[in-house]
Every structure is written in C-alpha cells, then in structure tokens.
C-alpha cells in the first residue's frame, strides 16, 4: 500500500508529465481555453492512461520485445476509439470543441511514454497507481491553466452553459490570454513560478 502511494504521488508531483517531464504539451496548450474542455480532456486522457497501463502491464510477459511498440499503440488506439465514440454520442458539443484532439490522444506522448517506461516493467496495481497519478497530474495542470485563461481572458467561467464565476462588467479582459500566444505565456510563467518556489523551498 505504501509503495502504491509513493508511485502515485511521485507520478502526480515529482514527475508531473507537463511541468517536469515536458511531454504531452500540445493538447495541454491547445485546449486550455475553457475549464469545461480541460475537465473532459483530463478525464479522457486519465481513462485511456489507466486502461492502457492495466492491459499492457497484464500482458507484459507475453508481448515479444521486438514488436512491443506497435502492440502498445494498438492497445492505446482501441481505448481512444472507445472515448471517441462515447464522447461523440453523449457530449456532442464538447466533442465538437475538442475536435481533432480526441483522436490525437493516441499520439499523446504521456500515454505511450508511461506504457514503455512504467507499465511494461511493473505489476498491475503499481501501473494503475502510476496511470492515476500521471492522469491526475496532467488534469491538475490543465485545470490551473484553463481556470486562469478563461477567467482572465474572458472575465468569467462558464460551465455547462451556466456562468459560475464572473469578474463583473467593469473588468475589461485582456483577450490575448485566451488566444494562442496566451497559452505559451501562461505555461512559461507557470513553469517559472514553479522553479522559483522550488528554489526557495529546497534551496537548490
């Protein structure tokens, strides 16, 4: 149990896929314009990550080493297809907004990277914990970026067509935050702030 918690926490913080390993950036930058999208994207990626980690970890002894990458990709692609069809059937407006990013979960480096680096070498429970930690870490960073960009860039947060938070009509939103360059700026400064805090706390 202790080991599982360690795996989970290390995946969530120390090896945070976006901030520390710097993988899976594309989707994070592109869809973090709205909190709602980040929530669904985070759930979709976590689902695929946990499921593919489980299957790959279970079958790690029967997969021949030479063809492991194609096998991993087919496993991942199957789960992404499930997400693709479910999202299209039950959440058409969100599917339309996420667009090409749902099929692109297949080529999200986080998922193949964890299959190769973790699930193919560890037992099932640890792989599930790693999947949850990685997915959670990805979702948290997405939520932070999404909240900041939607709140500052548009002046309010809208979820399921209801306004949750509003900064009032006197606030004039700097639209640049929610446009394309804003994604790069937000991510760069988020990373810099994290570096700063790390330096202060651990004095590295």
């Amino acid at each position: 149990m202790k080991r599982l918690r360690e795996v989970f926490l290390s995946a969530l913080m120390l090896e945070n896929p976006l901030m520390r390993l710097m993988i899976g950036l594309c989707s994070a930058l592109a869809i973090s314009t709205r909190v709602e999208s980040t929530l669904f994207m985070g759930m979709a990626a976590t689902f695929v990550l946990v499921c593919s980690n489980t299957i790959i970890s279970l079958s790690r002894k029967v997969i021949p080493d030479e063809v492991r990458i194609p096998v991993f990709i087919v496993v991942i692609a199957s789960f992404v297809t499930i997400v693709d069809l479910v999202m299209r059937a039950y959440f058409p407006p969100i599917y339309a907004r996420l667009g090409v990013w749902i099929p692109l979960i297949v080529v999200n480096c986080i998922i193949l990277g964890r299959a190769e680096a973790f699930a193919s070498k560890n037992d099932v429970l640890a792989s599930v914990a790693d999947g949850l930690g990685m997915g959670g870490g990805y979702t948290i960073v997405l939520l932070i970026m999404g909240t900041f960009r939607e709140l500052v860039g548009t002046g309010k947060i809208v979820m399921f067509e209801r306004t949750l938070v509003s900064l009032g009509s006197t606030f004039q939103p700097p639209t640049i935050v929610v446009l394309f360059p804003g994604a790069f700026f937000t991510f760069g400064f988020l990373m810099a702030i994290l570096n700063k805090l790390e330096n202060r706390w651990w004095g590295k």
Binding site: A183, F185, F189, M191, A192, I193, N195, N199
Partner: peptide, 23 residues
Amino acid sequence: IAKSLRGAPIGFITAGLMSLAFM
C-alpha cells in the same frame, strides 16, 4: 536570463511572442 526563467520557460515565452507575430 533570470535563473528561474532559464531553459524551458523562456522557450515558451519566446514561442508565445512568435505566435503573436503569426496571429
């Protein structure tokens, strides 16, 4: 460059400025 911006963060900010130009 300031220490905490060195490496990846300044790269992202540069990319942001380029993106601004491409807009």
